[in-house]
Design a protein around this nucleic acid. Structure first.
Lengths: 221, 221
DNA sequence: ATCAGCGTACTTGTATACAAGTACGCAGGC
DNA sequence: GCCTGCGTACTTGTATACAAGTACGCTGAT
């Protein structure tokens, strides 16, 4: 019946571009978005731009002000803590589920990621990437699509803070050890232990991030 | 600088109305939404209608089909289980946090809800309402806005399934006892215990719901 | 009678034109 | 010099007109 324009609609492109700019802090927290100016800048009309904006508002990557107008949400030290807590809860659940569903092939995959993780432990960015890859894989194994959705949303949000939460070498070593313990628990098929390890691992990351942020006392330099 | 039309925009009204119809199953799962027809039915143009639709898609209350067109998502026994699991994880976190933040006034409030809950345990709908009230209150006390957001979203989703998951008297008695244990743990300031009780309480609700659904083997009568 | 090919109609996506309302600036008076 | 009141300009929200593309139905031929 219908007619679909190939899923490459302008609104999707604009959404992706705006999201990229928000997460990369190219659009600065607190900055307001004016529809006509942004529309001309992105070479589209206001209609698809508005569609993208509304979607980003739904995902809490933009904020509609009570006084009107949309702004990029400001960063807030309390919020990053909340995000880590929710992520801890969700990842804990996923670790628990992964215990029950992991196949031998899955376990092999996890060990492979772990090995790459270990090799890259001294490079902050790569270590972070591999760490996220491990969690993403566990999310896949857990097979709870709702948990996956929320996890992804939280990860997006945290992306904005990442620029200010550089990890220390000590923290990365600790994270690697916890990742090992997590995979071990999953391999052992011990859901309670996996859940507990995952929870405390992410809560540890929270503490490290909060410490890093409060050390700089905000954002700038 | 800006101009705001009082936050009573047509798009918001349409959003609320569509959401109501979806959650009440007035719009049936699987049903497709045609923009022109729905727009005339709701007395607005396609523009605000589309805005409402896109927002509902973001909240997973509508689904954009790969072939084009948007439909009301179909109900799926596996999904309700996933929703309960995520809710368990989130409520577990909130119970943990509530332990650390609850004031004496909060505890009094919780006990009050508990008393009303006990008085209504034989009426399925009211018991459900009071149960949700308890969890909502705990969410408030926990003070994690992200957890609150996700919890609300999950609760909305589950609303659609509620019509098919009537609780038994036995299950309601059990839930009441678990609610008591939960409040007790919060009052005692024992985060681990509160988290565990909350988690297992919701997981118990999951099992009951899945049993109720599979008993009917689907939906109808 | 059945199948193939084309035309039409209906869908969604986009652009633009229009409406309403607010905040800012400027001018005039005290 | 400062305050007040009005006018203008700019914002967002809405409607409508336009474009593109697909699926269905109809007609004709085999």
């Amino acid at each position: 019946m219908p007619a679909i324009p190939a899923r490459n609609t302008g609104a999707h492109v604009v959404y992706a571009e705006l999201k990229r700019r928000i997460l990369s802090l190219d659009l600065k927290p607190g900055e307001r978005i004016y529809e006509p100016a942004m529309a001309t800048a992105l070479q589209v009309s206001r209609t698809p731009l508005r569609e993208a904006i509304r979607r980003l508002i739904s995902e809490n990557l933009l904020e509609q002000q009570p006084t009107g107008g949309v702004v990029v949400p400001v960063l807030d030290e309390a919020e990053i803590s909340e995000l880590y807590e929710v992520r801890a809860a969700v990842e804990s659940l996923m670790a628990r589920n992964a215990c029950l569903k992991a196949t031998p092939a899955d376990l092999g995959e996890l060990h492979g990621i772990l090995a790459r993780n270990a090799a890259l432990v001294e490079f902050a960015d790569d270590a972070m990437q591999q760490g996220m890859a491990l969690h993403a894989r566990i999310a896949l194994i857990a097979g709870n699509s709702w948990a996956g959705r929320f996890h992804e949303q939280v990860a997006s949000q945290m992306e904005r803070y990442r620029h200010y939460t550089n990890s220390t070498q000590r923290r990365r070593d600790q994270a690697l050890a916890q990742h090992r313990a997590l995979v071990e628990a999953i391999a052992a098929g011990d859901p309670e232990r996996a859940a507990k390890v995952a929870f405390e691992h992410v809560m540890g990351a929270r503490d490290a991030a909060v410490r890093a942020l409060s050390g700089k006392n905000g954002a700038g330099s």
